[in-house]
Write a protein that binds this DNA or RNA. Structure first.
Length: 272
DNA sequence: ACTTCGACCTGTTGGC
DNA sequence: TGCCAACAGGTCGAAG
């Protein structure tokens, strides 16, 4: 489900309902997600208020004065804000109940996500420390990409999906950005020119921004905190369009497996 | 240091 | 209709 735009959409959606609101109760139902949810948060958090919310890569950071809750939605996770009590479903693993009546509910059928607690500065947590730059940062430049990319032979698609290179470019947007930049996804990274990197970066930023504006991409089941789908899927040019005509030239979109992930491209607009 | 690949889970889909 | 394999938006960590 969630790539960066979906996570950003979620952060923006939950923030007004939970910031500076006092937690009454934390109910943990899942035995474990990717890692066990620390039980102590149900003792630590009641009486406390999230003072800020931050997104780093696809992690959602809920900051308290005593520490930070680190949340990842994995492949199928979702955070909802409920205002009337609803009986928890099979995959509703955590409820954080606030004094204002809001219940922040964490749902994740595949349990690839995580919910962790740290009392250290969150950005120094093992999971976050070695991440690459944010895609919207100044640091994410053609010069930067070219300098590290010229030593790498992996296909360019794998390269831009590597979170040590840049965070937040997932499987959908990697295909979309490469299509927009007219670069074939299997091109070895060290064969991508600096000019191409300049174009690619521009499109990565633009596509992510545009998708955030549309509330993310709903392929099957992404819903934001209030239950609304994202609308960016209507703008996908290649992802999931195997065999359909390219919107630019009419050639049939093809797919190839890269890094065990399905990859879509137009063989004519993105020649090798 | 770079790259590949298995692993973690459940639900849905499509072929036979 | 039913069964089963393949696949799904992520990413860690072991092994080559």
């Amino acid at each position: 489900m969630p790539e960066l735009p979906e996570v950003e959409t979620t952060c923006r959606g939950i923030s007004p309902h939970i910031l500076e609101q006092t937690i009454v109760k934390v109910i943990i139902r899942a035995p474990k997600l990717r890692w066990p949810i620390p039980k102590k948060i149900s003792k630590l958090l009641p009486g406390k208020q999230p003072i800020s919310i931050e997104r780093r890569a696809k992690y959602i950071l809920l900051h308290f004065d005593i520490g930070t809750l680190i949340i990842h939605l994995g492949m199928s996770g979702r955070l909802q804000t409920l205002f009337t009590h609803t009986a928890p479903g099979k995959h509703d693993h955590v409820d954080i109940v606030f004094a204002n009546g809001c219940c922040l509910r964490y749902t994740d059928p595949r349990r690839f996500g995580c919910m962790l607690w740290t009392e250290e500065p969150a950005l120094e947590h093992d999971l976050l420390r070695k991440l690459g730059p944010e895609p919207f940062s100044k640091e994410f430049s053609a010069k930067y990409l070219f300098e590290i990319g010229c030593k790498r032979k992996v296909p360019i698609k794998n390269f831009i999906m590597d979170s040590k290179v840049v965070v937040g470019v997932g499987n959908i947007y990697a295909s979309e950005a490469l299509f927009a930049a007219k670069i074939n996804p299997v091109t070895p990274t060290n064969e991508v020119t600096k000019d191409q990197f300049t174009i690619l970066i521009k499109h990565i930023k633009a596509i992510l921004r545009k998708s955030i504006k549309q509330g993310g991409t709903t392929l099957k089941d992404f819903l934001d905190n209030s239950g609304k789908p994202g609308y960016f899927s209507q703008q996908l040019q290649v992802y999931g369009r195997d065999g359909e005509p390219c919107n630019i030239c009419g050639t049939a979109i093809e797919s190839v497996t890269l890094g065990q992930r399905n990859t879509f491209f137009c063989p004519s607009c993105q020649p090798q």
